[in-house]
Design a binder for these strands. Structure first.
Length: 634
DNA sequence: GAGTTTGAAACT
DNA sequence: CAGTTTCAAACTC
């Protein structure tokens, strides 16, 4: 199948240089003398041909191979940049801010594994927060199932990149036509690639191919640009910064820093979102021009969001009044501040700890051990808690249609787009106050809940949810969806750039699964502000005030929304990995059974999920063997 | 800001 | 597994 493509690629790969030389009498003469010389030039003219030949479209390619392939691809690409006639390289050059950036790319790429496996807190902020705790267990054991995720990322990414290059070659003409008007555009396209890549990450091989047309633009730019973006995201995670952060054991919400995140299984957007925000902010500065192009649309989206928001906003009005005070003090809700007195911030009582982040100076906790200096203690404690409940640090709120799959046999299940995984146990609050985790998470109660007198505004346990509100939201969603679809057709580039914004975080989150945006793409349902954040108590990060920011901040909010979804997905993924991995034997249900209801555990639901996401799930389980880390653990 | 309420988390 | 205790956030005044 690839053969014809190869030949075509070979033909169109270097049209200009070839035509010149081959037409020259000198060439003919040389050719007659020594064909070897002619061949010798081929690698130069077809720097990507070999890549094309080695492209393994198979989804089930060994991760090892794909990883290696990816690396080799990168270096090939990098080497190819020395070929001055390479149009790709020209575009890459355009996309380069500095030459140093390109040099950093190698480090960036190579840092991936490092970031994933090695660093605990600091350098990792973005990545490690999403790395399963098991991934870097204290002994660095690779037996943990969590290890699979980073590899999966590499695997899939490599698989994705490969088709990109295939496409790149096959669409050389497009490359030549493509004219990135500026760096931002180029990067934007690249980011688009990242987005598409990330989306395709969970597609089957066939799906990935079908998506390729969307990648044409990105094909015009080598992965260096992408890597550079990633690198930029990691700029905040340099050892220097980490040192600085670690010294004070804070990171928190200072704009220039990232909050230290406890490496964990948890998907704690409390930290992640912030990290993403910080990291992406850097990228945004580079992509500002691109974003300006999308600003109008972004504002429109903001308006759309605003239209959905009020109903939900009311529900949180009271709490916002108080939170506003925090916001005014500059802290806001982007970072959680705990107030623990007795738990030493080493129990799930502590929001910071539960969110997988270290406490910060602004916390009011006492005898806090949830600090980097006590990393060992923190990790040990986390491990202990996870041994008791593997999902202890997993998001509590599961959003999107997955929720339907959680309890497919539940007729009373409300169409709310998210569910609390374990369900609440409210007795007196009627699930109308933030005591209720469901309500706090902005989701309706479900059959998993054991609440009494449920009046959850987001959906009652008995199914008599706030249908009107949801129906309206659904209508708005559909309308928004249609309008966006139209916009997409009108201006694919811009939209892709926007989507890219959402996808970018995952570029610096190597192991993250990425799907559709939680509420913007497939469903524009604006979640309750707090529900945007999975991870229970961390939800509040997404306050509407933050989300309401138009321009770039809004884009960032989309990132965070995306991340919320990612976190959920990741949690599910972890969940499944837990199910299918050796540690699945760990009791995934709490002793009482009331805290940890494993909605995915039952055969029907898990089967449904697997059925729906069979491709990637099986890919996770089957194509990613337990391989030792390629990089040092520290 | 102090005190109360609440329900999750932890413990027995 | 059920009941109890502990805990900190949410809430009220």
């Amino acid at each position: 199948m690839d053969t014809p493509q190869k030949s075509v690629n070979t033909q169109i790969g270097t049209p200009t240089s070839k035509s010149r030389s081959e037409d020259s009498p000198l060439f003919n003469y040389i050719n007659s003398l020594s064909p070897i010389k002619t061949r010798k030039s081929l690698p130069i003219h077809h720097p990507f041909s070999s890549l094309n030949f080695t492209s393994p479209p198979s989804v089930f390619t060994s991760p090892h191979l794909t990883t290696l392939h990816k690396e080799s691809r990168f270096f090939n690409t990098h080497n190819s940049s020395s070929t001055p006639t390479n149009p790709v390289e020209e575009l890459a050059t355009q996309a380069e801010d500095t030459k140093d950036a390109s040099m950093e790319e190698e480090a960036s790429i190579e840092m991936n594994h490092d970031d994933i496996f090695a660093s605990p807190c600091g350098r990792d902020t973005t990545d490690i927060s999403l790395v399963p705790y098991a991934t870097r267990g204290e002994n660095g054991s690779s037996e943990d199932a969590g290890m699979e995720l980073p590899k999966m990322y590499d695997n899939v990414q490599a698989k994705n990149d490969t088709p990109d290059w295939e496409n790149l070659i096959s669409n050389t003409s497009d490359i030549l036509i493509f004219d990135a008007r500026n760096d931002s555009e180029a990067l934007g396209c690249h980011l688009m690639q990242r987005s598409s890549t990330s989306e395709a990450r969970f597609c089957t091989g066939v799906e990935m191919r079908t998506r390729q047309p969307e990648l044409e633009c990105s094909n015009a730019i080598p992965n260096e640009a992408v890597s550079r973006v990633r690198r930029r995201c990691l700029d905040f995670e340099t050892p220097e910064n980490k040192e600085a952060l670690d010294e004070n054991n804070i990171a928190a919400c200072e704009p220039s820093s990232s909050r230290c995140v406890v490496p964990s299984i948890g998907l704690h957007l409390n930290a992640c979102s912030r990290n993403i925000q910080v990291g992406f902010q850097s990228s945004i500065s580079t992509l500002q021009e691109t974003l300006e192009q999308t600003e109008n649309e972004t504002r429109e989206n903001a308006d759309q969001d605003a239209r959905v928001e009020p109903a939900l906003e009311e529900l949180h009005m009271n709490s916002r009044k108080k939170k506003k005070l925090k916001m005014e003090s500059g802290e806001g809700e982007l970072c959680k501040r705990c107030n623990c007195k007795k738990s030493k911030c080493l129990k799930l009582y502590c929001d910071c700890f539960a969110a997988g982040v270290y406490c910060v100076e602004s916390c009011s906790c006492r005898d806090c051990f949830n600090k980097r200096i006590h990393e060992d203690t923190v990790l040990a404690t986390r491990k202990q808690i996870e041994s008791r409940n593997p999902l202890a640090f997993a998001p509590r709120v599961i959003r999107s249609s997955d929720s339907v799959l959680e309890t497919p046999d539940d007729p009373s299940k409300t169409p709310v787009s998210a569910r609390h995984k374990r369900g609440c146990n409210c007795k007196k609050s009627n699930c109308l106050k933030k005591y209720c985790e469901c309500y706090q998470g902005g989701v309706g109660c479900s059959i998993n809940c054991r609440c009494e007198g449920c009046k959850n505004a987001f959906g009652r346990k008995d199914g008599s949810s706030n249908v009107d509100m949801e129906a309206k939201q659904e209508e708005k969603n559909e309308a928004t969806e249609k309008s966006r679809t139209a916009k997409t057709q009108q201006n694919t580039e811009v939209l892709m750039s926007k989507e890219t914004s959402s996808a970018l975080p995952t570029t610096s989150l190597p192991i993250y699964r990425q799907q559709q945006l939680p509420f913007s793409s497939s469903k524009n349902l604006r979640p309750p502000p707090q529900s945007l954040l999975v991870g229970g108590s961390s939800s509040w990060i997404y306050n509407s005030q933050y989300l309401r920011k138009p321009d770039i901040s809004l884009t960032q909010s989309r990132i965070e929304k995306s991340f919320g979804k990612l976190a959920e997905d990741r949690a599910e993924e972890m969940h499944e990995i837990l199910i299918h991995s050796p540690i699945a034997n760990i009791k995934s249900v709490s002793p009482s059974g009331k805290r940890v209801s494993p909605p995915h555990m039952d055969s029907s639901s898990s089967g449904s999920i697997l059925g729906r996401k069979t491709g990637r799930r099986k890919l996770i389980l089957q194509s990613v063997p337990s391989l030792p880390s390629l990089t040092p653990q520290y």
